[in-house]
Design a protein around this nucleic acid. Structure first.
Lengths: 190, 190, 190, 190
DNA sequence: TATGAATGAGGCTTCATTCAT
DNA sequence: GATGAATGAAGCCTCATTCAT
């Protein structure tokens, strides 16, 4: 699986770095192919369009993030513990993948987001929505309109990850993550 | 005072609409000047660069938002009431100025944010930071690291405004705003 | 005479400096007027066109140079002395007016020289041509085709002035001027 | 070797014609590419900048001129004959390549000469300097400061070529060349 | 699959010039 | 005479994309 598409992967990897450093519009496809060590034409063999490249990158990262957030959920007993676990996973993943976070952030706020990628992406997080609904029905989570809750959770997490990523001191960072997660939990708990 | 600079204002107004509709990069300067009813050169007479235009727009909107959020604070007695008031003001202003919100959002997540504009902008919100610090010292607000708190507040507000802006029904919208503000308040209260 | 046209003179003086430093095309009229302390429109009140400004500057400098070269000729007795005197005058003037030399040089090699200015300019140097013709008829100057001689004299002088202008040490400079004039005299003497 | 870069050569050839006819600033890159029969982008594929194109043209012509001037030097016995030969070669080449002469002239007097090209160009003419130095040490050439001598030689040649280029009658032209070379030789001989 | 020369529409910006005040 | 805001044609250059090899 890795054998054949080395070039495609090289393009995707390079694109992630460049996009997060310089933005979508500040990154010409020619730069991506040069840095990836392939010809200009090669990029367009694998991706019909620059936007297609961005979309595929988005889908992959979204899926990876969702997978990372699920990790270990099943071993948790209570809904509260599960929600905490997801929050923790999210922040940890975000801090270990700052480029990907930056990319996602940029994508989410771009005016040209391909709606299809957008929607496909959201579907990866249904498990989160399910979790929250369960929490509400169990009376642990406050009975807020679920879409609103979902939206506020997402923005809070994004803010927390962004802030924590700047910190160098691992000790302080861990503390900030705890405080941030507390803010979020207090915001939603019944 | 309004006599002069009509064209400059026309450019700024047009730019706001176009930028929030089509993004910075999707909006050529030529389109801005055409829609504003001025010549290409006129835009560059008032703004040396496209980026300068974006910066000035940013500074103005940021100042306007800050002013709107302050409104009526002094007439509130308690810190809690003041913080609520600010939150309310923020959401109300955001919903009445969806274009400006979109613009700010885009600017904040752009890779080419002029740092000077960024910093000048932050200074407009010192009053919020002060409010929060007072809340902490009075024991009403939980003792969270202030910069973290500030960052999470900002992202939560942004999420709330974005969500509420989509709703058409004014009744439901008001309810959502209340719920969202409750989320935020629960997140920070002691 | 100086009373009224202060602004016109300011424009001409500023233009000389800027043109010789940055070239005709590297010097926008807006820069000239700004540096001269006048409005953009004022420049076009005195000179219908940027090219007109350049032309007038050219004519003035050419006339000034010619006048400088004539100085003291009549007090010299022999043709040889007169020719020497002219050469000396030319080099001295050139070294005292490096900006003007640079301007003339640039003008002479510009592809858009207004022919009228060109021709009017040449007429200022008829005295030189006369001098050379006298020299030939007296047998002091070699019998070369006069236009050729004239052309070679001009280029030699220009080369000498340019070279000598670079030298800082006045002693060495004087020596170079003497050597250069010797080169020229040997080139034309019978 | 000729297979590739046909377009690059077409651009350079077209640029030479247009630049010498209309000057650097009077020749838009768009005109060059159109006349050369290539797309706008192609010009910028081969030359990152308009100035780069000018520079490369300059270097090529300078090298060609130097090569032309050397021709047959070795078969001459005396220094005097060699110097004469170089002078002759220079004038002949200049008259057979009027466009290139015009281009060089314009470049030399442009305010934006890239110093690197300037210096590289001068190195092509070291042989001339060597020749002159030999002449001085043999006592055939007058002991003039070599840089001065070099500078005056260059300007004299330039003047001669320019003048001779105007003449239509080949007989008169040959005579003028001889007279001009005599002027130069008399200027430098001991 | 892979290459990279070639394309050309389109973007940002400059600047000589005008004209109402 | 003097001003300077306004104009818009034109210039240089970028870059996503194509296609012959």
């Amino acid at each position: 699986m890795r054998e054949k598409n080395i070039k495609k992967e090289a393009i995707l990897n390079t694109a992630l770095v460049l996009f997060s450093e310089r933005g979508f519009f500040g990154t010409p496809t020619s730069l991506i192919s040069r840095e990836a060590g392939v010809a200009t034409g090669t990029l367009f063999f694998y991706f019909m369009t620059k936007e297609d490249l961005i979309d595929e990158l988005y889908r992959r990262i979204k899926a990876e993030a969702a997978a990372a957030m699920c990790r270990g959920i099943r071993s948790e007993k209570t809904i509260k513990a599960k929600i905490h676990r997801v929050g923790h996973n999210a922040v940890v993943w975000g801090m270990m993948n700052p480029l990907k976070v930056k990319f996602m952030d940029q994508f989410a706020h771009s005016p040209f987001v391909s709606t299809s990628a957008q929607e496909e992406g959201v579907s990866n997080f249904i498990f989160l929505q399910d979790l929250v609904l369960e929490g509400i029905s169990e009376g642990i989570v406050r009975n807020i309109d679920p879409p609103l809750l979902f939206c506020m959770l997402a923005s809070s997490f994004s803010g927390l990850v962004n802030y924590a990523s700047f910190l160098q001191d691992p000790g302080k960072r861990a503390k900030m993550v705890e405080e941030g997660l507390a803010y979020i939990w207090n915001g939603i708990k019944a």
